[in-house]
Structures are given as C-alpha cells and as structure tokens.
Nucleic acid binder design. Structure first.
Lengths: 353, 353
DNA sequence: TTGAAAGCGCTACCAC
DNA sequence: GTGGTAGCGCTTTCAA
C-alpha cells in the first residue's frame, strides 16, 4: 500500500473511504464520529483509509442531517468595539476562540453597526444558522439577548445584562472596586473620593457600589461630595477630577472606575499642583497597557478577560447540549495590581485578590 | 390572507413556500436566488409566501449543492493580537465585517496560538471549509499564505507579506514616514533621528525606508548615528532614545516608528532634561489613542485601518469569483496628524496626506 | 416560463 | 458489529 502524501482534501467523500477500507459508509461514519460499536479490525482499516486519502468530513452535508451547525456566533455591537486603549476585545475573543477550538466549533463573528443592523443580525441568528450566541455587551440595555432567548436560541452574555434570567459571565466589579478602596484605606488615606462610570452601565454601577460597600465596611461615612461620575473617556476623567478638587480640596485619594479616566484625572491633579501619590493617591480599573505609560505608573484592578471568554463559551456549550436547568452565571475574580500611584513611600509591590 | 407575524424561521423549507405559492420548488429557488427567468405572477406569489412564512434558506443544504460555503476565514496569528494600546485589531475586523455583510458572507474567525495550532488551522482551511482566507499578519515570515496559495485557496494578506505573488493590502508606510520627516524638516529641524521597528517586519523596514528616502530628497546626508532600531515596545523605545542621545547629543528631532515606542522615547527625553518640542521634536506612527494621553500630545501618522479591512475583503471576493489575472495589491494613503510634540511655537493644527 | 427529478455527502435507523 | 438505505433542503439540469 503506497501512502500518498495528503493533498488538498476537497472532494474526498465517505464513499471513497468506505470503498478503500472495504467497509460500508455507515461504518466509516461511525469511526469518524467516535462511535464505540465498531470492530477493532474495521476501525484500523478505516483510519488508514482516512489518513491515506486525507479525508475531511463535509460540514455542510453533516449539518444538513444533524441539524447542528457546530458553530457559535459572537456578537459585538458597535459601542463595545470602541473601548479605547485597552485591548479588551482581542482578549475576550482569544478566550472564546481557544475554548471553541477545543470543541471543534467554529467562531462566526458579527459586528452589527447600529440598531438596524442589529435587527438583521437578530433575524440571522433566529434563523438557526448557528447553535448558540455569545454576546459581548457593554451597554446592558441591549434588546438582543432577550429577543434571542424568546426565540429559544441559546445565548450567554459577557458582562451583567439588564434583564434577569439570562446566563452571563461577569467580572467581579464590586469586589475589584472594594479591594481598591480597601488598599487606599490601609495606606492611611482618610478622604477617598471616586470617579464612577455611567450609572446606566453595569460596570459603572457595580464599581460605584463596591466603593460604597467598602467605605461602609470601614465605617467611613460616604460623603456625596466625594463622588463624581464621568463617561469612561479621558476628558471626562479630567473634568470630573477638576470638579472633585473644587468641591473637596481636602481629598487625599481617588478610586477611578477606568484607567483611561484615571489618566485624565492624573492630568487634572498635575494641573492643580497635587503630587501623586504624596498628596493624592490614585487607583484605576482595567490594568490596561496605559498603566505603565503614566508618570508615576498607575495602580489598577486587573480583570481576567481571556478567562471570561472561555467561561462564556463553556456556559454556552452546556446550554446548547441540554436546554434546561436554571440559568447559570459566573462571576470572575479581579486582582489589584499596586504600582507607584498609590504608594507614598517608594515601597513594595504587593497585590491582593 | 392573514399575515402571521414572522416567528422563528427554523424548519420552514422551500417545499412549504412552494406549496403555499402554488409553484414548484424550482421556481421558488429561482426567485430566492434572483434568477431573471421567472414570470411576474409567480414571482409575486413566491415573495408573498416567503414573507408570510418567514422563510430563510438553509445554508447547509445550499452549500452541499453549490460547493460554496459563503464564508471567509479571518486568520489572526498570535503575535498580531498583542498590539498594545492601539485598537488595530477591532478596527480591521470592523472593516472586514462590513464588507462581508454587504455580500451576505460569513466571517469565521481563527486565532491560532503558536505553530502547531497554525498547522491545524492550515489543514482546516485547505479542507475547503471556507471560500477564501484573509490573513492579518504582522510578521511577514508566516508560512501560511504560501501554503494556502499552493493549495489554491484564495487568500489576501493585510500588510506586505514576505513572498511575492500574493495579493495584499498595505498602508503606505514609506509615504507616512516620509511625510513625518518632511514635516520635521519644514519646521526647521536639522538633525532628524529615527527609532525604527524590527527590520524583519515589513512595517519596520518600510518606515525606515521612508525616513531615508525623504532625507535623500532633501539632500540631507543620512547619518547612521541617527538611526536606532527597537522592538515596537515602550521599553524598547525608551532605551533606543537613550542610546541616540548618547551617540548624537545634538539631535533636534526624532521620527519614531510607533506611538508606543514614542511614549517610551518621550520618557527618555524627559529623563535627559530635553524639552519637547523645543529641544527635540517628535512624531510617532499609528495615531493611536495614546497620542492624546502624552504630555505634550504626540504628532503621529494615521493609518486607514477600517479601509484596509474593507479593501482586503474586496480583493478576496474578486479572487474567489474568478481565479485568474495578476495578483492585485493595494496601498492605502496615510495622513500626518500634527500635535504639539512637533511644533515649537504653540502653533496651528495642519495636516497632510 | 415552469416543473420533475436527480443528486450533493452525510447520519441514523433498522435489520441482520 | 455491520451494512443497506432513506432522507436532510437545496440547486440544477433536462423536458415540456
């Protein structure tokens, strides 16, 4: 038997493998799909034939009969792609891609622009072209997850969605914010302010909740004067910091709900002649590449983004394999990364979960 | 006739549409695929039935007979995903996604990790699961495009690939670098240095070529002392700047081949007590979000990233529809964005292509 | 202009 | 444990 070096496998069918291995198409199918009920002898013969011919199953033919596509859609609506600086987007995708590859499933990427486009995408998904949907949503008000669930399309959301009853994976925004505030308090700061994100976005609301939670725990009164909100942009962060300094000149620390806003806040502090961290300590959120470009380097809360993608995929696959059971949700731990912006004495490099 | 509100379209077949419209399956198929040879009356009846039933063609069944998948793979090898700070990755994808949606084609995303994984991906692609491949490659030494072309899989590369004969779309790195240098010369700078990228990467080599080209044009001698290379990282940029300052203390401008390296270079200049732009003017490349976070804001060369994705897709589709003709390549214009880092007098805001 | 019918390659059921 | 075979939903000849 001459082993031909595998060439382009297009066109090789089950039929040909079967005839080369002297078995029926059914047997080849069983071997290819890992069915146990195949004799040792047949199995070896089929495997050899598959190898020799470089056979690869035709997905379309398989889908047609199994009614599965073995593919999953990842939907990234417009605003989610606009995350500046922080490579959030490639990181979730990497996590998802890894987990799907393990299951030999395809990743179909959809990036609708605007509501109209989102409608098109919704119809596409409802048409059953994919086995399930992963939705990376930064604005919780998205109607898509609800619509999909209504159409009984398996769906998992990344980030806390507005409605309930939908499986999702989120980062522990409260816990992350809480640990940042705790760190500042432990360093002896008395007047810890915060620049929060938009309160109609889950991460915005949750990080502010974590701030309040930790202050309450330490029996620090929450002073409304010390709370500002901004829109997750650099300029927004700068302006918010300026307002805080005007209202509460005695503040000695600030927890900022994103690194980008923190960069803006640092500019405002510098403009006001406040030394970082001596006069004002500052901690951001995201642990983005920005943190090491600032002067001094910015302490920040790190999120396990790849893991989020992987976990979303696991949940979805469970969802696809057996519709039923209570909707599952997973909250992933964050980690505080301490840098010079929050440590007055040119001190250590501790970190905590 | 009662118009039922479209519900989940799964399960509605050509057959059902045909029977509702009182025509044959063949006729429905013709209407759905825009075949001209259908009577007005039949066409209207079919369209109504399609609408009423919410019919959506089954892709698998169609693929099985047409032998097309109507899908395109986008391959992003590991290192390409590591682009810091700059949201290059989401932007190309957005461009590709838009262009594919216009053609009703699916985007299948593949993110191989390491050479082994890339082999798997290569076999997958060669198996004909997609109609064509878009490869976003930052390191030109990738074996994938060559392998795919050998297997006669239509492929278009983003960024100049090493081998020739492969269609690609690239940004005008030479021209961009050239315009940056021209700008510095026009501002009266005499000793223009450069921090280049790795010379085994196309953008690294091309941007350096543009630098030399423009100096030659201005009959400035190229002084080897004024050229340093680094690895596109922040630290690399800082170290390269430090070396330049040591070797050529009289330099009064520097063109840096990436914004991230430019941020590092600015840190080195600051550490050396050089004022920006008064002592040393600086221009980066990418026009990333970083440019507005630096002090002063960084002049930079902007690249049309979304357009690159769109153009890649157009080329690929042409490639898929009719294999033949000379391999096409497209070079997209860049634009210099002038900010304070390169303008001594607190001057204007000009820009040039 | 229209319809009948032959598959595309595969899985899964049923019989042996 | 194995093989025969009936479709999955669609496109595309070929005739009419």
């Amino acid at each position: 038997m001459v082993t031909v070096h595998a060439r382009r496998a297009v066109g090789v069918t089950l039929e040909q493998v079967a005839s080369l291995a002297n078995v029926s198409r059914a047997t080849v199918s069983r071997v290819v799909n890992g069915d146990r009920r195949v004799g040792e002898f047949s199995r070896v013969a089929v495997e050899a034939a598959v190898h020799e011919l470089g056979y690869v199953p035709n997905r379309a033919a398989r889908s047609l009969v199994t009614r599965r596509s073995d593919s999953v859609a990842v939907v990234i609506p417009e605003p989610s792609a606009q995350v500046f600086g922080d490579p959030f987007f490639p990181r979730v995708l990497r996590g998802i891609s890894d987990a799907l590859a393990e299951e030999s499933m395809q990743l179909v990427l959809l990036m609708p622009q605007g509501r109209t486009d989102e409608g098109r995408v919704g119809r596409y998904l409802a048409a059953g072209h994919v086995d399930g949907v992963l939705l990376v949503s930064l604005h919780g008000s998205d109607p898509l997850p609800g619509a999909l669930q209504h159409d009984r399309v398996p769906v998992v959301v990344g980030g806390r969605p507005r409605g309930s009853g939908i499986p999702y994976v989120d980062v522990d925004n409260r816990g992350g914010a809480s640990s940042a505030v705790q760190h500042l308090l432990e360093r002896g700061r008395q007047r810890v302010a915060t620049i929060a994100g938009p309160q109609d976005m889950a991460p915005g609301a949750d990080r502010l909740a974590g701030y309040h939670e930790r202050l309450a725990l330490a029996e620090h009164a929450s002073d409304p004067q010390l709370v500002e909100t901004a829109d997750f942009t650099l300029d927004g962060g700068r302006d918010a910091m300026a307002r805080l300094l005007e209202r509460a000149p005695d503040l000695d620390a600030v927890f900022v709900a994103s690194d980008l806003m923190a960069v803006g806040a640092m500019a405002a502090l510098r403009a006001a002649g406040r030394a970082i961290p001596d006069d004002v300590a500052i901690v951001g959120f995201d642990d983005s590449p920005l943190t090491t470009t600032t002067q001094p380097p910015l302490s920040s809360v790190r999120q396990p983004i790849e893991e989020m993608g992987r976990e979303m995929t696991r949940l979805l696959i469970r969802e696809i394999r057996s519709l039923g059971g209570p909707p599952r949700r997973v909250i992933l731990d964050t980690q505080l990364v301490v840098r010079e912006s929050s440590v007055a004495d040119a001190g250590g490099d501790d970190s905590r979960g």
